[in-house]
């Protein structure tokens, strides 16, 4: 999977590349709009991470160009600007998703995976991990062909864990993934624990291996050997 990261801040693009490479993505970085345009003319990308504020122009203009040329690359707009207007403009222009800075890398990874799934398979994609099969379109989870009945939160959690498998996920990142930016309304993140406990229980009951590990003091990890 090819990812183009259009971001003028080298420290940030380096972090993103490091994280995504471990996930098995091939990453290219463009620090300017011109560079990004040149790269998109030569290569096809599965997903483009597009920062709106670039030294030589607005990322939204680049997005307009891409959409005008009927490119099929998935685009996730990243912006340090206030979410409201850019988010609306970005999505109106045909971006697949929007992420405000700062973001958690696992969250970015989950968004990229979701965009690629939707783009590649027109929404009906089977996500498979050993004995676990997930149809992300119908939100159906099967373990050894047994249907596992998960709540919306548990389902989101499972996808999040599988996309970020073998990664330590902090409780705050998980909480924000589940509750959006309102996660800080909770005094503690005990509610995550309840969801994870239920998910573990349901997967175990269906006969799945125990992949979900609690990492002491850090959070959780979906461990796949």
């Amino acid at each position: 999977m090819n990812i183009l990261i259009v971001e003028d801040e080298p420290a940030l693009s380096k972090s993103i590349v490091t994280y995504l490479k471990q996930e098995g993505y091939t990453c290219a970085v463009a620090a300017t709009a011109a560079d990004a345009l040149a790269k998109t003319e030569v290569f096809d990308y599965d997903c483009i991470l597009l920062d709106i504020m670039l030294p030589d122009g607005n990322g939204l203009d680049l997005l307009r160009t891409l959409k005008r040329d009927k490119r099929t690359d998935g685009v996730i707009v990243i912006s340090a600007k206030d979410a409201l207007d850019d988010k609306i403009t970005g999505l109106q222009l045909g971006a697949d998703d929007y992420l405000a800075k700062p973001f958690y890398l696992p969250e970015l990874s989950a968004r990229i995976a979701s965009v690629i799934r939707r783009r590649k398979f027109e929404g009906s994609n089977e996500l498979e991990l050993n004995e676990i099969k997930i149809d992300t379109a119908s939100r159906m989870v099967r373990v050894h062909r047994h249907v596992v009945d998960l709540t919306k939160k548990e389902f989101d959690l499972l996808i999040y864990f599988i996309v970020n498998k073998n990664r330590v996920l902090s409780k705050t990142a998980i909480a924000e993934h589940l509750s959006g930016s309102d996660a800080d309304l909770f005094e503690n993140f005990d509610f995550i624990y309840a969801h994870i406990k239920n998910l573990k229980k349901k997967l175990a009951a269906a006969g799945a291996d125990d992949y979900l590990k609690s990492v002491y003091g850090m959070g959780y990890k979906f461990e796949v050997a």
Partner: peptide, 13 residues
């Protein structure tokens, strides 16, 4: 926001 994003990403790594 950008330095914050960098700090955040480094913490994740």
């Amino acid at each position: 926001q950008t330095p914050l994003a960098i700090i955040q990403s480094k913490l994740d790594l």
